[in-house]
Each structure stands twice: as structure tokens, then as C-alpha cells.
Amino acid sequence: MRDQLERLRREGLAALAGAEDEAALRREEVRLLGRQGELTALLKQVGALPAAERPEAGRLANAVKAELAAALDERRRALAAARLERDLSGAGFDPTLPGPPPPAGTLHPITRVQRRLEDLFTAMGFVVADGPEVELEENNFDALNIPADHPAREAQDTIWVRSERGVCMRTHTSPVQVRALRRFGVPLRVVAPGRVFRQETQDASHDHTFHQMEGLVVDRGVGVGHMLHAMNTLLAGVFGRDLETRLRPGFFPFVEPGFELDARCPFCSDGCRVCKGSTWVELMPGGLVHPNVLRACGVDPEEYSGYAFGLGLSRLAMLCYGIDDIRWLLGGDLRFLEQFPA
């Protein structure tokens, strides 16, 4: 018995010390000390010994049990420490492996630019108004002081809708000026984003359908300085910093005086492809609302004045994201759309 216990002790201590990992250790624990284990089997034999030998054998067995338990405990701690050390060392961990595919949802680039502007102008108390894309000639041209024989009305510029009265695909967002003034009256601050249509052969920079945003303010005492302020604020909002701007003369029948606003090229300091080397980019036409337009909308031009400006949303989106061809915008190609995470 003594020999058996001694053998178990030696063999057990060696096995515990040699257990490679916690699972192996657990297996040795069960084999040596478990309810069905080898030590338990020996302890059962103690009862079969002559009475004189029993106390000695019992003590010895308990000593072996205690020694094995201690060794087990020590080995377990050592293994745990080694595991922690390995864990902390980073071994076996590849931080460069990919996670699951990220969610893919995207918003259209025009939506992104448009929302930014809507938010900016809403914060300044502007109504975001809407008007139909299929519009009356009256609103698209007449009320905007565009003469009946103006070339813009002709079939080579305007897409007309078959109708008994003059109906066209609106050629600009400006008819929303008319609708908004009639609906909301004065004083009024309004922006109107939307799609517009022109007889245009498609190429990289032209499409027959594109997006604009109209701005209009009518109140007492409104002047060009107010328009310039709104335009500068808009550009700072879009490009994230103040841009130097300049006004040049421009001509549009529904404003007088009319302007073109140039901004210092946001993409370079000494000339690039966008500004064609000039460092100025033509961004926004605008002007004081023509008295004939105010009158057509039931507003007295002697009492009120206003400014209006237009902005090419499609062009702005293309500038902001470096989109090289306008036909991507309405093409619906997922390889394009997927590049604009929501």
C-alpha cells in the first residue's frame, strides 16, 4: 500500500507538473483526485488493511492527497498566469483580420448637399418651399419678366408638355419664387431646391435633368448687401470656411441689377482644373428681384424690394465630391451610389 501510494504520489506530481494546459490539468485532476479517481480507489483499499496498518496508511493517503491538491493548485495558478501573460502579449491575436461586412446604406450626393443647405437656411428662418416640375409657362416665364418672344422659351431650350395651355418642364427653380410669394406673401424668406429640365444633349458636363436651389428674400429695405451676406454664408456653410467672393454684372430677366458671384477657388491657391487656372469659380447668379416680378406676384415694388439667387445643386455636388461626369447622378449605378455612406 505504501508503495502504491508512493508511486501514485510520484507519478501524480509528475503528471500534474507536465499538464500542458488547463484542460489537460482538469483531466489529471479527475484521474488522480476525482470521485472515481485513483487516490479514491486506494483509500477504499485502506479499509481492507489490518487494523494496525490502517492509521499509518490513512495518514499517508491523506498526505498524498494534500500534496497532490497543492501541486494541482500550484499548476493551475501557473497555467492561469501563463495564459494571462500570453493574452497580454498579443500572441495569437491578429488585429488586422476583418470584422463582419459593415451596413451598406447610402444617401444620394445631391440629397447630402441639399440637406446641408436646407438646414443652413432653415436655421436662418427660411421656408423650404416646393413647386411642381411640370409647370405653367406663366409661372416659368411670364411672371418672371421673360418676354413672350424670348429665345429661352423656344423648343431648342425648353422641354414643352403637350397641353392646351402653355405647360413645360420647368427650366429653373425660379417659378417657386412666384408660387411662394403668392402663397406666403411678404415679408418672405424662402429657398426652393428641386430638379429642372432643359433641351440639352447629354455629355460629361450637361444633362437635360439637373438640380438647382433658388433663394428669395422680400422685405422692406432689402439691398444687394443682404444678398451678398446670404451668398457668403451659404458658401461658408457648404465649404466649411469663409471664401473670398466678388460680384460681377450678370443678366437674368427676373432680376435687376443682376450679378454673378465668383468665389476664390476652394480647391487651389494658384489655379487648377476646376477654376481653369483663374483661381475664381463662378458659383451663383443672383440679383435684386425685378419690379415686374414683384408686381406679377401682387407685391408693391415701391414698398418692398428683394433679392433672389440660384445655385446649381448638381454642380455643387459634383464640385464637393469631385464627380467627373454629371451622368453618374441620375444613372442609378450602385458602384457610384455606394460611395456616399448615409
Binding site: 432653415t122 428662418g125 427660411f126 421656408v127 423650404v128 418651399a129 416646393d130 406666403f184 415679408p187 424668406r189 428674400v217 422685405d219 432689402v222 439691398g223 444687394v224 448687401g225 443682404h226 451678398l228 451676406h229 446670404a230 457668403n232 466678388r246 460680384l247 460681377r248 454684372p249 441689377p257 450679378f259
Partner: peptide, 25 residues
């Protein structure tokens, strides 16, 4: 008059208007 006087002389001027939330669609 404006274009001869020079549009570059025009200074931006913030509009003074009542503070009220705009109608939203």
C-alpha cells in the same frame, strides 16, 4: 450706377428680421 461705382465696394450686410420658426413642409 452700381456696376460703374463698382460692385466690389458692396459690403455684406446681415438681414434683420423677426425671429420666428419658418413653416416646414
Amino acid at each position: 450706377v452700381g456696376r460703374m461705382a463698382g460692385y466690389h465696394r458692396i459690403r455684406p450686410e446681415a438681414l434683420l428680421a423677426p425671429v420666428e420658426p419658418p413653416w416646414t413642409d
